[in-house]
Design a binder for these strands. Structure first.
Lengths: 357, 357
DNA sequence: CTGAAAGCGCTTACAG
DNA sequence: CTGAAAGCGCTTACAG
C-alpha cells in the first residue's frame, strides 16, 4: 500500500504511480530508505542479515532504481560523446553495439556525434561541453588525431582512444598488438611457401598502419626474405584504394603470389582485382585481411584474417571512461591491450607451381 | 553570484558547483523559475518581452537544462529498447547512428538488445519490462515477427516496425514502397534492353521480400516479357545465399543477361559469382542491388541500387515512439512511408550482342 | 500571462 | 552498521 493509494490529491502532487521506490522497499524490509540505497549500491558495511531482508523485498516488489533520481541526487551524471568520422560501416556497427550496451549497463548516456575532418576542433569541443559531455570515446581514425586530443583535453574532458598505434599520455587507450597480429598473418603466408608477398598498407595518418607494416616486414626478415619495396603499397582502408593497390601489385613484372591487406575491405578489393585479372583466389593468389569485420565473410572466397574484438574493445573503453568520470583517482590514463586471434578461412593456400601468365 | 558561493556547508548540503540552474537564470532575468521553465519548454503563453529577457539570460549563463532533473520532476522517462537479430552490419550501422542521434535529441534512452530467434519471446518481454522499457524499436527481420509483436503488445509497450512489408495494427511502421522500388529497378533493366532478367529474392520470412518480387514481376509484365519461373530464386539476404542463387542462375541453359538481387550483399555475391565464372560485369551481366548500404560501393564495379534511407527511417521511428510514450493520444498506430531513390552506378549496362559461351 | 508551493526518487553529509 | 534531514534541478498543479 503506497501513499498514493489514499486518493487525495494535494497541491503540487503528481499523477500516476511509477513503480516501487526505495521507500516502498524500505517499508517492506522494515529498514530506512538509506539502507536500501546502501544495498543497491553494494556498500560493504551493511549487515548480511539486513542485506538479505532488503534484497528479498527488492525481488518481491520488482524494484529497479530510477536512474534520473539517482544521477540528480548523486550529482553524478556521465555523458559520453562518441565521435566518429568515416570508419567502415562494418567496423562502426560492431563498435556501436559494444559501446551502447556498456553505456546502458553502467548508467551512462551515449551521444553519437559525426565529426567531419574539415570541421573545427574547437567548435566541436564547445559543442560537446554545451551538451554536458564528460568523456569522449574515439574510434579510429579520430583516435589518432593529436590536435583533437589536445583540444578535448584542454576542455577538461576525459578520453579513450580505441585501436590507436600511439596511446597518448592524455587519454586511456584500448588496443590490440597490431604489430604482432600482422606478423602472425605474414608468417602464416611465408609458412605456406610464399616468398613474394605484397603488402597493402592502411591510411598513413592512422598510427596502426605503420605497426602492421612493421609486423609484415619482421615476418619477411625472419623468413630470410629480402624485402622488396615495390611490393609495399599504401591505401587508405577503403575498398577503392585496395583495388588500386592490388591492381598495381598484380601488374608488376614479378607479381606477388600472396597479398596481405591491412584491413578486410582492402582485402575484399584485392580479391575483386584478382578476379578482374582472371586470377583464381587462392589457387593463383593468396589474400589475407585484417579486423574480421563483416566484410571478411561477404566475399568469395571468405577471408583469412586477424580478428580484432571491436565490440569488446568499445565496451572496455566505455568502462574506463565511466570509471574516470565517477572516480577522479581513475583518471590516470590506462592502456588496456586485448588479445587478437587468427581466423583461418579460404582465401589463402600453399604456394603452387609458378602460375602461367 | 550563486548561493553556493557563500561557502557555508549545512547538513545535507551538496558539494561542488554544477553549472547554472533555472534559479540562476530566473534571478538574472528577474522572473520566477517557473517562467524560465516555460521558456525552455517553448510554452506559447509567455510574453514576447519576457521570453526575450529569459533567453538572453540563458545565453549569458550558458544554461543547459539538467535532463535528470527534468525527467524526474516531469515523471516522464522514455526508454526505448532497440532489438536486433542479424541484419547485415552495413544496415545495422546506419540504423544505430540514426536511432541513437534521434533518441539523444529527444531525451530518450536507448537500450540496445540482441535477440536470438531461438530465444523465448516471453522472457524477452519480461526482461524489457524489468529494464523499464516503454517502447520497442524493431528493424528487420524482427519487424516481421508477428508473435514478437503480439507478445510485446500484451506487455503494454509501444512498438515501431521499420522496413516491414506488413504494417501491423499493433505498431507504428516506417517503410519505403518496396514494390515500387523493385519495379523501378527492374524497369531500368528492361529499358536497357534486357529480356532475361534473373531475380534473387530475400528471406521468405521478411514481408518486404514478396513486395520486391511483385515489383520485379510487374515490370516484366509491363515490358511484355513472359515470366520464366526458373529465373526466380530465393535467398535469405546473406552474401552466401546470393552466391548460391547467382551460380544457379548463371548455370541455366539459357542464363539471364541481368540479375536483380533483393539486397546489396546478395548483389555483391552475384558479381563475385560472375567473376568466378569468368563473366564481365556489366558487359556480360548487368547486376542491381537494393538498399544502398556500404556494400554497394565495396564491390567492383559499384552497384546500381535503390537507396533506402535507413538512418532517416530509424530517426522517424524513434520520433513516433517518443511521441507515443509522452502523449497517449499519439499511440494510435501510424504508418509513415518515406521516399526511395534510384542510385545509378556501374554494375548495369545496355544489353550487348549475345555473349559467347 | 506569471508565480509560490510541493514533490519527483534518490543520495550526501552528518550523527549516532 | 544504521537512520533522520536536507537537497539535487526541474515540473506539476494550482491560484491568481
Amino acid at each position: 500500500m503506497t501513499d498514493q493509494d489514499n486518493g487525495r490529491v494535494k497541491r503540487g502532487q503528481r499523477r500516476g504511480a511509477r513503480g516501487p521506490t526505495v521507500a516502498d522497499v524500505a517499508r517492506l524490509a522494515q529498514v530506512s530508505p538509506m539502507t536500501v540505497s546502501r544495498v543497491v549500491n553494494s556498500d560493504p558495511k551493511v549487515h548480511e542479515a539486513t542485506r538479505a531482508k532488503v534484497e528479498q523485498a527488492i525481488a518481491e516488489l520488482g524494484y529497479v532504481p530510477n536512474l534520473a533520481a539517482r544521477s540528480l541526487a548523486g550529482g553524478r551524471q556521465c555523458r559520453i560523446g562518441l565521435l566518429h568520422s568515416n570508419p567502415s560501416a562494418a567496423y562502426l556497427s560492431e563498435f556501436l553495439v559494444g559501446s551502447t550496451e556498456q553505456a546502458n549497463a553502467m548508467g551512462a548516456q551515449l551521444l553519437v556525434e559525426h565529426f567531419e575532418e574539415e570541421a573545427s576542433r574547437d567548435a566541436l569541443a564547445a559543442k560537446l561541453l554545451s551538451h554536458r559531455v564528460d568523456a569522449v570515446l574515439l574510434p579510429p581514425p579520430l583516435s589518432d588525431d593529436v590536435l583533437l586530443l589536445e583540444c578535448i583535453n584542454r576542455a577538461g574532458m576525459v578520453m579513450a582512444q580505441v585501436a590507436t598505434g600511439a596511446p597518448s599520455p592524455l587519454a586511456h587507450a584500448v588496443t590490440i598488438d597490431d604489430e604482432a597480429a600482422a606478423y602472425a598473418l605474414t608468417a602464416r603466408l611465408t609458412g605456406l611457401g610464399h616468398r613474394r608477398i605484397g603488402f597493402i598498407g592502411g591510411a598513413p595518418n592512422q598510427t596502426a598502419s605503420a605497426l602492421r607494416r612493421n609486423g609484415y616486414r619482421r615476418a619477411l626478415a625472419e623468413a630470410g626474405i629480402d624485402g622488396d619495396r615495390r611490393l609495399e603499397t599504401t591505401g587508405d582502408f577503403t575498398f577503392r584504394s585496395g583495388m588500386e593497390c592490388a591492381l598495381a601489385l598484380l601488374s608488376l613484372d614479378e607479381p606477388p603470389t600472396a597479398i596481405f591487406a591491412s584491413n578486410d575491405d582492402m582485402a575484399a578489393a584485392t580479391i575483386a582485382a584478382a578476379h578482374r585479372m582472371g586470377l583464381d583466389v587462392p589457387r593463383q593468389l593468396s589474400v589475407c585481411g585484417f579486423d574480421d569485420t563483416a566484410s571478411a565473410t561477404n566475399v568469395w572466397p571468405e577471408l583469412t584474417t586477424a580478428r580484432q574484438p571491436v565490440a569488446d574493445m568499445a565496451r572496455e573503453a566505455v568502462r574506463l571512461l565511466v570509471d574516470s568520470v565517477f572516480d577522479p583517482k581513475a583518471r590516470t590514463p590506462r592502456h588496456v591491450r586485448v588479445d587478437f586471434s587468427l581466423v583461418l578461412r579460404a582465401s589463402d593456400a600453399t604456394l603452387m607451381a609458378p602460375r602461367a601468365r
